[in-house]
Nucleic acid binder design. Structure first.
Length: 264
DNA sequence: ATGCCTGCGGTTCGCAGA
């Protein structure tokens, strides 16, 4: 079972990159962010043709999230419960994973999330980011109480630690690396989640985003902001995790690359 | 110190992203 997250920075601009990557990586479940289109404009048929079920929560021009799954899935929420939001940043679905040899299967709850950027900080946009994170933390606490297999995957727009950024000093005043952002992210993690990638290595220098500007990719001036947070029961089954950074070197890439984990 | 680049909407520039 491979579960992945990928901020595509416009699904219509990235459908061919996504299709190539789906065929190569063969993930079972994928959370997408920054669709930048309404549900009607989402290239559903192209993705279904590759063997995926698709649920979307789109928005014109900005934001937009989706979940793809090789297995049947049912949407539980479009929008974060308990958080009034005009912006399409959250989708949650129950995926029905079949058992082996016809045995009874098991559900995995999948939450796809696109966090607000939060700049400039401080300010109203930063307040919105913290409010969103608080609301997600409250919802996550309720979900953890169910003791299910659960993943919250997406673009968190938060750099967890110094080892997750090439030039920490350049990000000190940025909402992605603000102490308050990192503290709020730790409160979420400390409910009992496992950062799938971080659980597999202590090494720094692994990034999921490189800015389009100033040759950031060529200089490996990156940050790790796309995360897969696993509930205890799902973390028990974790085998490996990875970041498919080769996509960043393709023509017309997203500024993010896919992050994935493999479980039993 | 500032902008660099990309996508979108809708026109040839402004906004947002991170």
């Amino acid at each position: 079972m491979i579960i992945a997250t990928f901020n595509v920075n416009s699904i219509r601009q990235r459908i061919e990159h996504l299709a190539r990557w789906l065929q190569a990586r063969q993930p079972d479940i994928v959370c997408l962010q920054e669709l930048k289109c309404m549900d009607e404009a989402f290239p559903r048929e192209e993705i279904e043709a590759l063997g995926y079920n698709v649920v979307t929560h789109g928005q014109k021009t900005f934001n937009g999230v989706a979940i793809l799954s090789k297995y049947p899935l049912e949407v539980e929420h479009r929008g974060l419960p308990g958080f009034e939001d005009e912006q399409a940043r959250y989708i949650e679905a129950a995926v029905s994973v079949p058992g082996e040899d016809g045995a009874a299967g098991e559900a995995i709850r999948v939450c796809g999330v696109y966090f607000p950027n939060g700049n400039p900080a401080p300010g109203p946009k930063f307040d919105y980011k913290l409010a969103f994170l608080d609301a997600l933390t409250r919802h996550a606490r309720n979900l953890l109480a169910l003791e299910e297999k659960l993943v919250i995957a997406g673009d968190y727009n938060i750099i967890p630690e110094e080892r997750d950024v090439k030039f920490p000093d350049a990000w000190r005043g940025d909402a992605l690396f603000f102490p308050e952002s990192r503290a709020a992210y730790r409160r979420l993690l400390n409910l009992g989640f496992t950062d799938a990638f971080r659980a597999t290595t202590d090494a720094g220098g692994h990034y999921s985003f490189w800015d389009y500007q100033a040759g950031a990719w060529q200089r490996d001036n990156g940050i790790r902001i796309d995360h897969l947070l696993l509930s205890p029961r799902l973390a028990d089954t974790l085998i490996e995790a990875g970041i498919d950074k080769a996509l960043r070197a393709e023509e017309k890439p997203s500024d993010h690359v896919p992050v994935w984990c493999r479980t039993r």
